[in-house]
């Protein structure tokens, strides 16, 4: 009973928030609605007993990703209304629903076709965080380390891309100045 009420409430809230995100013409509204939707999604993880995943969802999405977007939006002109493609609405919705159903079929096909059994069954008597730790640091140790390297690469890429020439504004310079800066950079790379 409690689970059903929580599921329907959060399902409605999540769908409403994400609907606002994809339909609004204001970038700030979209950002705020997306952050709210992320928080509501973490509620599903708590309902499903994946406590650690829910906490990670809040920390990573609502904390890190949203802060990153908020800082990134300082560089863009967010007061202007967002322009949208006005294609055939029927084609867009039809294709979206078709692909979404296809994804569910891909995920659900193994469940339907064979009797699926758990390869890493949950152990009794320990919390979700402990279980996650045990599986993550034994069976999934190599992917975990690869993910760590990937995050390091992404961090360096972000710093190099966004932090370059922070002290001068490339939008306010004339084209000749931009070209000059570019040539200097090329010389540096070549020498």
């Amino acid at each position: 009973m409690f689970e059903a009420v929580a599921f329907y409430l959060f399902a409605f809230l999540t769908i409403a928030m994400f609907f606002i995100t994809v339909t609004t013409s204001q970038a700030l509204y979209a950002l705020t609605a997306l952050a709210a939707g992320m928080i509501f999604i973490s509620a599903f993880f708590f309902i499903l007993g994946a406590d650690f995943l829910g906490a990670v969802q809040i920390v990573v999405y609502s904390g890190a990703v949203m802060a990153l977007y908020a800082f990134g939006m300082m560089f863009f002109d967010t007061t202007r209304d967002v322009k949208e493609k006005h294609g055939n609405k029927l084609i867009v919705s039809g294709l979206s629903i078709l692909v979404a159903v296809l994804v569910v079929v891909i995920i659900a096909a193994p469940i339907v076709s064979t009797n699926m059994s758990a390869s890493y069954p949950m152990t009794e008597g320990v919390g979700n965080t402990q279980e996650v730790g045990m599986v993550l640091f034994t069976k999934y140790l190599v992917p975990f380390e690869v993910a760590a390297v990937m995050l390091l690469v992404a961090m360096i890429a972000g710093i190099v891309l966004a932090g370059k020439k922070m002290d001068l504004s490339l939008t306010l310079m004339s084209d000749d100045d931009v070209r000059q800066v570019k040539e200097e950079e090329n010389k540096k790379v070549l020498s």
């Binding site: 994809v22 322009k83 949208e84 493609k85 692909v99 979404a100």
Partner: peptide
């Protein structure tokens, strides 16, 4: 599925 469809509609109709 519903959330995935919403996201796909967003991907297809946004220009920004």
């Amino acid at each position: 599925t519903i959330l995935f469809a919403i996201g796909l509609v967003g991907v297809m109709r946004r220009k920004n």
